[in-house]
Amino acid sequence: MELPVEIPGLLNYWIVIVLMMAGFYVVISQGNLVKKMVGLSVFQVAVFVLYITMSKIDGGAAPILDDAIKQYSNPLPHVLILTAIVVGVATTALGLALIVRIRDAYGTIEEDEIIELERNDD
């Protein structure tokens, strides 16, 4: 596969770092619980990219037993990340389910309002 422009070797890693920090920042800074979940997902996706990137070998093909293929990329990280994606989906689903229940119980999904309500509970 030919690309029109040459991509600098470490670009993917920069992307990982940017995604990771962005996701993490959203988790910390946002008071809206759904936005927190979005940030968390972005953060997890960054790790997926990290794993996939490290498995890629220049000029490597998919790991298929064929005489034409001399060099192939490491398939293991892809498999690992399949598992991690499943975990990520489960986490997101559970998180969103909790948010629904929180909205039922508190009538809001803004963290500062919830904290205020909790303080009144005690």
Binding site: F24, V27, L33, K36, L40, F43, Q44, V47, Y51, A84, V87, T91, L94, G95, L98, I99, R101, I102, A105, Y106, I114, E118, D121
Partner: peptide, 22 residues
């Protein structure tokens, strides 16, 4: 109802922790 928010906070931090681990 505090159990819900406690679980949610644990979910956020727990997931961050597990992600750090991987």
């Amino acid at each position: 109802r505090n159990a819900l928010t406690a679980a949610f906070r644990y979910l956020i931090l727990g997931t961050v922790g597990a992600t750090f681990y991987i």
